[in-house]
Write a protein that binds this DNA or RNA. Structure first.
Lengths: 335, 335
DNA sequence: AGAGGCTGTCGAAGCGCTTCGACGGTGTAT
DNA sequence: ATACACCGTCGAAGCGCTTCGACAGCCTCT
């Protein structure tokens, strides 16, 4: 069973090869009757254009790269959500997604760009000082970053507005009357690395606390149960007035609740707890956590949408920040 | 800056285009001197072969598809581990990975195969009655499945030997002197769907228990804390002699420990607990859990290795089962 | 009635690469 | 010395598609 080519379709429909191409691409006007005849042949023969030939002739592969670094302290489920929304959105724009990880290093990007395997790329989990950024500038490959590097000029970046997410938490707790509140963040290594979103969340949190005249404490948080327990105990001992806790670390979220239980503090009666995390994590906790949502699906969608616009030659904003969304559940209350 | 083509390299090196091609592919003998001269030109010009042209001429895209369904109850981190090991291994074989999700449905597979976008595919999370399986047979596309469908004849399947994993847990607990042991499995929906690995684990567990003359209980387990708590409480009430617990559900692992704490049972003094999960989850728990490892990286590696063999036309075994590995930590002890 | 402008279709020229057959040149067996 | 084999290299023919320019036919405007 030889594979069906455009020539077969053309013969079957009794038209020229170029006519079939134009029907399929819509790049020139074709009469309705011809068009229908061609489409009927396409279906009858089960024709699918050969991707390689198309890419060669058109200089467009209709594939975009999704570059995931996969570092310690990243929460995988969120990454997966990004990834799947990128794939789904890309398909809506008739593109496929090539998955790349960082272990090939920057050379991977270079290779993929130079070989015209992809038309553009979406880079996830971009750090403040990301080695991929200068390379991106050099390659001139259309791209969209998820996250913000230190120097974002000339790049297209998308992310949740983490500063506002941190602030939203402080706002919510302050409005409930809490006067001393803490943020438990990512593991230390994430801050050491200079990961923008973690820092911006803290800044937003602290800043908003100051505005409200509320005492804020911000602390990194490791991910083992015992470490979380120690951190929480320490926090409560040092700050007896502490009554509000924000967890921005998905692996630790469950442990924090467990630690409070062990320490004999009730949620929300003694301590209000909120999380910055996807909804399903917040809902699965006990009690369900008031949370600020990380809109992973939306970020992925925006990233692809922007990339597609760039591929069309449309100008796009350098920076796109997505609004955090507060969902009030049962883990916070006034005092 | 026009992109560098093989013609540029040939001119630069003073040889024919075909010679450059043969140097790069090694498909014909080329003298050492010529070869070196060509390679020097390749580096000097920064040549990368155009993927589309290569695919068109050679009928090989050097891309494989990775198909993730993404259903409820799947544990994402494990999927990610599979995925990254597939990508890494594919790169070792000079292939890239196209990421596909199920929302395009079987047509996605058909499209990708017919357009010669990929040379073969790796399908993850295959169910007992998987709609993709008949399609796969029809397409005749080289493929490897991770997981086992009901009828695996003529297909290449890889997976952890879950029956032996379940048995290993029962063996371990029995050898420690426990006479009544329970398996907490995946959420009910997973069994309803007919997911092979979940069922096989249970069967192996029950079977091994029988061999040892130990009472076994196998129960599905939802993933919220409160549900887990209720399940565990119920289990302990109904089976007062229960002293060993196996958790085969990553989202629930942490909750089970929390539930036991709440119920006043110490681990491992009162109840021995083990898990079937990746090492990092087991190590992060408190106390660190004796576990049977899911060798995600190895499964991904094997899948790609087998696929590459098939692409070379080498015959491969229909079924590859990976040995479970028991790691004894602090959550189990004799009674 | 003729010029000019649209529309819809065709033919042909590549896109950059692989691969096949051909062919000098050198080494080995007769 | 002649025949033969083999090694290393070359030229050319596609792979299946897009796209450009050409052009026939028709309509509209003067």
């Amino acid at each position: 069973m030889r594979t069906v080519t455009i020539t077969d379709v053309a013969k079957h429909a009794g038209v020229a090869v170029s006519t079939v191409s134009y029907v399929l691409s819509g790049k020139r006007a074709i009469s309705a009757t011809t068009s229908q005849r061609v489409m009927r042949s396409v279906r009858a023969l089960g024709y699918h254009p050969n991707a390689g030939a198309r890419a060669l002739a058109s200089k467009r592969s209709n594939v975009i790269a999704l570059v995931l670094p996969l570092r310690a302290g990243m929460h995988l489920p969120v990454l997966m959500q990004f990834a799947t929304s990128v794939v789904t959105t890309a398909r809506q724009f008739d593109h496929d997604v090539l998955l790349m990880t960082a272990d090939e290093g920057p050379d991977g990007l270079r290779r993929v760009a130079a070989s015209a395997l992809v038309d553009g790329m979406v880079l996830m989990d971009v750090e403040i000082h990301d080695p991929r950024v200068p390379l991106l500038r050099e390659l001139g490959e259309p791209s969209v970053l998820i996250g913000f590097p230190a120097d974002a000029s000339g790049l297209t970046c998308v992310d949740l507005d983490f500063a506002r997410a941190g602030a939203a938490c402080a706002d919510h707790l302050a409005s409930l009357g809490h006067r001393e509140i803490a943020l438990l963040g990512a593991p230390n290594v994430v801050y050491k690395r200079g990961t923008g979103y973690a820092e911006r969340t803290m800044e937003g949190f602290v800043e908003a606390g100051r505005t409200h005249g509320v005492t804020t404490i911000a602390s990194p948080c490791e991910e083992g149960f015992d470490e979380v327990c120690a951190t929480v105990r320490d926090l409560l001992e040092r700050h007896p007035g502490l009554s509000g806790l924000v967890v921005h670390n998905e692996a630790a979220t469950g442990h924090v609740l467990g630690a409070l239980r062990v320490l004999g503090r009730r949620v929300p009666e003694d301590v209000s707890v909120m999380a910055i995390c996807p909804d399903d994590v917040a809902e699965r906790a006990s009690p369900p956590l008031t949370s600020v949502l990380i809109p992973a699906a939306d970020v992925g969608y925006q990233a692809v949408r922007l990339l597609m616009a760039k591929l069309e030659g449309v100008a796009v904003p350098d920076s796109t920040l997505l609004e955090p969304r507060l969902a009030i559940r049962q883990s916070t209350r006034g005092r």
